[in-house]
């Protein structure tokens, strides 16, 4: 991070490529997306699913395309992940850093953009953009502002996956341990069992910010539709449209690390800061 900061401050490169292990690559992509506002050049993260000590490794192809993209004047100045599009060594996908997720434990084409088209693809040395117009601009009003970097992330933030039979004690622990925020990964539109709700209410009374996301990964949360959701909403649970659970976790840690006012954190959680929320969900984009 310090090194990236240094590169940015000196504005030397045309772009940078960061190699990274694939398991936590999406977390890093999101963290960089939130912490660097208006990067002066494209920041590309890449890696490999097949280790580079074997002749069939995907490392070279991914790296080649990442460099090609980072050096291209066509490249967008934001954080992206460039990795294999298919099993073939023929094309790479360019994923926005706030919509990408590792979806397979071993395949080369493990990374997918969820809830919409990826930013684009690279094939035969050409960059082809695919994302719909309306999803493209990352907060137009940020344009023309100088680059801004913040490295503060709140550590007392949790990510809890909900399951039938979940014990409220999990949340009680977080309250006692002084957690500032929790991202819940609920079922469907963003639901939890009723027996969890009193503890959620208690957590919010204890100044904790609770954000709801969905295990379905695709689609929006909507807390007004069913009783469980309405009670959560009444209790003060925030729902942030279709932000992915892991991205919500990073975003919440970023916001709590940089804003003191709880209300501001809640408001920004619902705003589309770095393309983490899909503006329009298209019919053909769910497979």
């Amino acid at each position: 991070m310090t090194e990236i900061e240094h590169l940015i401050q000196n504005k030397t490169p045309q772009g940078i490529v960061l190699t990274h292990g694939t398991d936590t690559m999406a977390f890093t992509a999101a963290a960089l997306s939130f912490s660097i506002t208006n990067p002066p050049f494209p920041i590309v993260i890449t890696g490999s699913q097949r280790s580079s000590d074997r002749p069939s490794s995907d490392a070279f192809f991914n790296l080649y395309n990442s460099v090609l993209y980072a050096a291209s004047p066509q490249a967008k100045k934001e954080v992206v992940v460039v990795m294999h599009e298919k099993s073939s060594d023929t094309s790479c996908t360019i994923h926005r850093g706030t919509r990408v997720r590792k979806m397979h434990s071993s395949r080369r084409d493990t990374f997918k953009s969820i809830g919409g088209s990826p930013l684009g693809r690279i094939t035969e040395g050409k960059i082809i953009y695919e994302m719909e117009e309306e999803n493209l601009p990352i907060k137009a009003k940020l344009k023309n502002k100088p680059v801004h970097i913040t490295k503060n992330f709140e550590e007392k933030v949790g990510l809890i996956y909900h399951y039938p039979g979940i014990q409220p004690g999990i949340l009680d622990y977080c309250i006692e341990a002084g957690f500032k925020g929790i991202v819940l990964v609920g079922t469907g539109l963003g639901h939890v069992s009723f027996n969890l709700i009193p503890t959620i209410e208690k957590a919010i009374e204890n100044e904790m910010i609770i954000v709801m996301t969905t295990q379905c990964l695709h689609g929006f949360t909507a807390l007004s539709v069913y009783e469980s959701g309405r009670r959560l909403q009444k209790a003060g649970v925030i729902h942030a449209f279709n932000i992915l659970p892991e991205i919500a976790y990073i975003k919440l840690a970023y916001l709590l690390g940089n804003y003191r006012e709880k209300e501001k954190v809640k408001e920004l959680m619902k705003q589309n800061l770095k393309g983490e929320i899909t503006i329009r969900e298209k019919y053909q984009e769910f497979h």
Binding site: L189, G219, F220, A222, S224, V225, F241, R280, E281, K282, Y283, F286
Partner: peptide
């Protein structure tokens, strides 16, 4: 008939924003 200008809300596939 689905067009580029519509999303899955028009198709009754997601709650309203």
């Amino acid at each position: 008939e689905v067009f580029d200008s519509v999303c899955i809300y028009e198709l009754d596939e997601t709650p309203p924003l």
